[in-house]
């Protein structure tokens, strides 16, 4: 499954890069969500994928029996998902306020920090 996941990751990355290069800031946000997914899958896959054996210690035992899913990348991905969500929420607030102020979602037009006048001087 790792090989197939790698291809899925590639597809997600390509799509997110393409969306983040778009002029529309909402597309950029779509790209951010996809990139977050691609990153999480990458961490998950690089810890190797085990089918159907969650990382649990059965009652009465001191350690899991047999091979179980790798717990470490799962913990990392859990953290990453939440942080990715925080990032998206903030970026979304930024985009929303940006739109309210500049009346545009075109990043070529949204130039609060580096106004166009400077470049024509």
């Amino acid at each position: 499954m790792e090989a197939l996941t790698a291809i899925v990751i590639g597809g997600l990355t390509a799509a997110s890069v393409y969306l983040m290069l778009a002029r529309n800031f909402m597309r950029f946000l779509f790209g951010l969500v996809l990139l977050s997914n691609a990153a999480n899958l990458t961490i998950f896959a690089s810890g190797r994928m085990t089918k159907g054996h969650p990382a649990l210690v059965p009652y009465g035992e001191d350690a899991p029996l047999g091979v179980v899913g790798n717990a470490l990348p799962q913990a990392l991905v859990l953290t990453a998902i939440v942080i990715g969500f925080g990032l998206l929420a903030f970026t979304l607030a930024l985009a929303f306020e940006g739109y309210r102020r500049m009346k545009s979602v075109d990043t070529d037009e949204m130039r609060f920090a580096e106004p166009k006048e400077d470049t024509t001087k």
């Binding site: 790792e2 291809i7 590639g10 390509a14 896959a45 690089s46 190797r48």
Partner: peptide, 12 residues
């Protein structure tokens, strides 16, 4: 995208 796939495959 293709480069990412290759890197993940190499890692695995």
């Amino acid at each position: 995208g293709v480069l990412t796939t290759i890197v993940v495959l190499l890692v695995v």
